[in-house]
């Protein structure tokens, strides 16, 4: 399976220094994520989930250990190289949607493609908005959309650069139950169709149970890494 690994985390640790004191947020974490699979990282608040997600996605650098994404050693990259890696390999979904407030829904979806220098992207972006059911809202600004709609735009944006791996940070954390179910379904559907690897950070055990595998963190340490048995394909 090693040749199919898209994300390798080897003995990763993260220490923050504040006011002269060191705080170890992650300690000696190791795991591998294979291409096309879905993984949930769970744990209580303050367990280090989001920090781990940041390291996996090249948003931050590990204090120790190694992070290899799509055969790229992230530790050795400069900030600009990390940015290019993110653009070419990674999609993001955030708990608070993080749409650009000054861009319309369509423009938000187009940004990752524009960054890759792709041409004729308008049609592709509209198609993605159509897939999330917002084709008719393409010219609305985020402020004019509901929370669920904003997260759907965020999903369309995340898939717009056809990422090898998608990181989702509490994707339904800011949504009500009914909307959450719709977003989850959309997320997994798009993921399956695109064949993207999915890494979700969540404390929602129900959402976690829909992935192939659940990694549990506690106080910065990996305490379990279990596969999930599914009666139906996810």
């Amino acid at each position: 399976m090693q040749d199919q690994a898209i994300l390798e985390i080897k003995n990763v640790g993260k220490v923050y220094k504040s006011a002269g004191k060191s705080l170890a947020v992650l300690k000696d974490i190791s795991f591998t994520v294979n291409k096309g699979s879905s993984v949930a990282i769970t744990g209580a608040s303050g367990s280090g989930k989001t920090t781990l997600l940041g390291l996996c996605a090249g948003l931050d650098k590990a204090s120790s250990g190694e992070v290899i994404l799509n055969n790229i050693h992230l530790n050795h990259l400069s900030e600009d190289e990390l940015a290019a890696t993110r653009n070419q390999n990674i999609g993001f979904i955030f708990q608070n949607f993080q749409l650009m407030p000054t861009l319309t829904a369509l423009e938000n979806v187009m940004v990752p493609m524009e960054l890759r220098g792709e041409k004729n992207i308008r049609h592709a972006a509209l198609e993605l908005l159509d897939k999330v059911g917002l084709a008719d809202r393409s010219h609305h600004y985020p402020i004019q959309l509901s929370g669920g709609e904003q997260q759907r735009v965020s999903l369309a944006r995340a898939f717009s650069n056809r990422p090898a791996i998608l990181f989702a940070d509490e994707p339904t954390g800011n949504l009500d139950g009914e909307t959450s179910i719709k977003i989850e379904k959309l997320l997994f559907d798009l993921n399956t169709k695109a064949g993207t690897t999915l890494v979700i950070v969540t404390h929602d055990l129900e959402l976690a149970s829909r992935t192939h595998r659940i990694i549990k963190l506690k106080s910065g340490e990996l305490i379990s890494d279990e596969s999930v048995a599914h009666t139906q394909p996810v």
């Binding site: 940015a83 993110r86 993001f92 993080q98």
Partner: peptide
């Protein structure tokens, strides 16, 4: 800040 951070996540270089 937040919009710039999102752009950086999407692959925009600091420069």
């Amino acid at each position: 800040l937040s919009a710039i951070a999102t752009l950086r996540c999407l692959g925009v270089k600091a420069k």
